[in-house]
Amino acid sequence: MQKEIRQALAVCPPELQRAVEALPEATQRYMEELRLRIGREAAVTTGKREAPLAVTVRPEWVESILASATGHAVYSAQEMLKNGFVTLRGGHRLGICGTAVYQNGTLSTLKDISSLNLRIAREMKGIGNRAADWLWTRPRSTLIIGPPGRGKTTLLRDLIFQLSQRFSHRVCVADERMELAAVVEGSPQFDLGPKTDVLSGVKKARAVEMLLRTMNPQWIALDEITSEEDVNAMVRASYCGVRFMATAHAETPSELRQRPVYRSMVEAGVFENLIVILPDRTLKLERMISLD
């Protein structure tokens, strides 16, 4: 079994681990997610296919997986639980579905958990070679786009490594969800290169400010720009000469431009390079074209 899968499955009960182990090696190699729905057969996804495992998910499994994933401490994962996920050691992400609990009008946690989705994080050195060659000729702020599950984070991780190792640039990573570097006790679980500094767990907008003030970065890398706040922080920081390497959810450049949250970012010209991950996972490299 691959190291990443073994690491991600560490939170699962032995019966479930054995069911995954029994899968053919090819399925294990391309396994992207483990999907668990109470009372249903567990399943693994490889690409768009969902293959069932021969075990039915029991409520106590979900409880024990959540306990292990949160370190038996709701308080330490509360912010993540509010957002419907928990990041595990190794950068793997456990997505959670259940019923919301509101306190004073704000979402405080999720209860009666019904489904879990364990996404396996992988390090794939070299997948960004072509993009890195292109970046060498155009070392400008770059946005990577693609729909969920197409490998934006994996590509970003490789590009960070290449900027740091091959270009010898100083890269600072704002790793809010602790997935990019997956730092455990001060040491990143993924190799992001020798000139990379990682700030973990800080909200992206705040992290950009902190890194800019304290770490003198040439590049700041961040995953999944989702809020106006993140965009504003990047716009402000781009005036200071720092370059960004980031990802955003959008299938095509036109979809990106249509989404209000990215509109100001495109208008401000924060990004000059655009990398589109196509359905067959090849990369389309282009210049970012402004709205007009």
Binding site: T70, G71, H72, A73, Y75, S76
Partner: peptide, 10 residues
């Protein structure tokens, strides 16, 4: 607990 929010075993 208040300073580090460490997971329970740690």
């Amino acid at each position: 607990l208040n300073y580090t929010l460490l997971p329970l075993p740690e």
